[in-house]
Amino acid sequence: MAIESLAALMDAGAREDLFEVIVRSDCVDRGVTREASIARMTALYDAIRRARSGYDPALRSRSGMVGGDGAKMRAHAQSGRTICGPYIGGVLAQALEMGESNACMKCIVAAPTAGSCGVLPAVLLPYQERENLPDAAMVRALYVAGAIGQVIAQKASIAGAAGGCQAESGTASAMGAAALCYLAGGSAQAVCHAAALALKSLLGLVCDPVAGLVEVPCVKRNAAGAMIAMSSADLALAGIRSAVPPDQVIDAMREVGDKMDVSLRETGMGGVAATPFGQRVAEQMMENA
């Protein structure tokens, strides 16, 4: 039984822990045992942790536009001069580091895509450390994040080429918000509303990678996606609900994506990609091809 809507998830989650609902659905979906499913998700969490330790601030991406910012942010987070405080500073650093690792051909875990791979690690890894949570809890939260992504993929899209960056960064942020809300003890309803609040905050975001590369603006959007995941989780935990029902937010995201001009869907022809800076980088890449 694949989970088809957030309404279905909220319904099932009112009676039973969300993780149980989702792991069962995965077993049916892929024809695997519960143990095999959990083992694979546990391996995935290990891969996320390995990806974190693979960060190298000295690396630069193929175009040279990306690299080293994660380390800058990490130093700043510990400087005592942050606006957001050291904890959020660390989250931002993690988001940038993972995005940079991806751009520099290090190993990462796409979640849901490679371009948006920094959001989930950025909200989950520091939270686990601060709250001293066991890995098993984090693995359960990954199921919740994954189910949110599945519903969005099914009802709309998770590809920038199809739905713009709202579909990638927006989905990553919604997944992160849901996972955090779940870990903090939020109800299934709160979890799904956290996801909807995040998605709504990034609604309309275009996909405009400079020279078509997953570098600019992608890396820094991971930081933004992580922030919105955290704020959305806290709103939902406070008892605040998305006025628009969560499934309708996803429908709206799809509609916005359908209306988005093709130049704003990963073609590298609109948005920041079309700026004089973006065009210059694109020309340089063509010359070096």
């Binding site: 892929r30 520099c104 990462i108 849901p112």
Partner: peptide, 16 residues
């Protein structure tokens, strides 16, 4: 898409 199409692949970047 199944759960592990959403979470994963474990991959070298930059683009899935």
């Amino acid at each position: 898409m199944n759960l592990f199409d959403i979470l994963g692949p474990v991959m070298v970047g930059p683009s899935s």
